[in-house]
């Protein structure tokens, strides 16, 4: 794993504590990429230093251009976090392209990404660790509270089509009763009506549950036959 740019920069400036410095040196001994970055940091530092000297001598120098020309080479490898996100295609397009380009130039980062892919594949190929008992689902179902009916009632009434139908049916029924002078609202209270919303929705006109003549024998029905 490559070193952070800030660490290398601090190392280049000899600003690290002794123990960290030793770790960095150990890493530099085995990592070409970090050695190159450190070399670039030294180059930039050197350029800045010489520019300062030359400016003092009154020589016209395009400081910014020279500095910028030296900087791209000093850009560090993407962090492990960036490479990890790259392997998940979780970077924005610009960054993704940048990393992709970097991988064609940097063998070390390319290897790291391949290792992440290999790890991902290995984890995805792990066999299932736990198989539930066959009766697990029935145990869950038997343990859930008995709220089914309440929820269903609530949702049926929430259905605007059913609600409108039931209201319209109620108005029609009251209308029929009012048109017929034999029935006053007081009489209606004594009639046992057992028609449900489902009866209206799903029964055919010949269905016995809709045969209002049977449940309200004295009320003449509207003539549907034309």
């Amino acid at each position: 794993m490559c070193l952070d740019f800030e660490i290398l920069s601090a190392y280049g400036d000899d600003e690290l504590p002794e123990d960290v410095k030793k770790d960095v040196q150990a890493h530099l001994a085995v990592c070409d990429a970090c050695r190159n970055i450190l070399k670039n940091i030294h180059t930039v530092n050197h350029n800045i230093h010489s520019l300062k000297q030359q400016t003092l001598k009154g020589i016209e120098i395009d400081f910014a251009n020279k500095l910028i020309a030296a900087l791209p080479a000093a850009l560090p490898c993407p962090t492990h976090e960036t490479l990890s996100a790259y392997s998940d295609k979780a970077l924005d397009f610009t960054k993704f392209k940048e990393v992709k380009q970097h991988l064609t130039e940097c063998n070390i980062c390319d290897k790291k990404v391949k290792t992440i892919y290999a790890l991902s594949k290995a984890i995805r190929n792990l066999p299932p660790v736990y198989k539930a008992d066959e009766d697990f689902i029935s145990k869950v179902i038997s343990d859930i509270p008995q709220t089914e009916k309440k929820i269903i009632d609530f949702h049926v009434w929430n259905n605007s089509r059913i609600r409108r139908f039931v209201i319209a049916a109620g108005i029609a029924l009251v209308g029929i009763l009012v048109v017929n002078n034999n029935y006053t609202p007081q009489n209606i209270e004594n009639v046992n009506i057992t028609i449900t919303a489902e009866d209206f929705l799903f029964s055919s006109p010949s269905d016995s549950s809709l045969d209002m003549k049977k449940s309200i024998p004295d009320i003449p029905l509207l003539d549907n036959s034309g």
Binding site: L3, A26, C31, K111, K112, K114, Y117, L119, N125
Partner: peptide, 21 residues
Amino acid sequence: RFPLVDQGMLPEEILLEKEWQ
């Protein structure tokens, strides 16, 4: 975290072996 371990590359075919799983 600032890492210092050089991990090298892990061969994919090995990671898929049972012992490694």
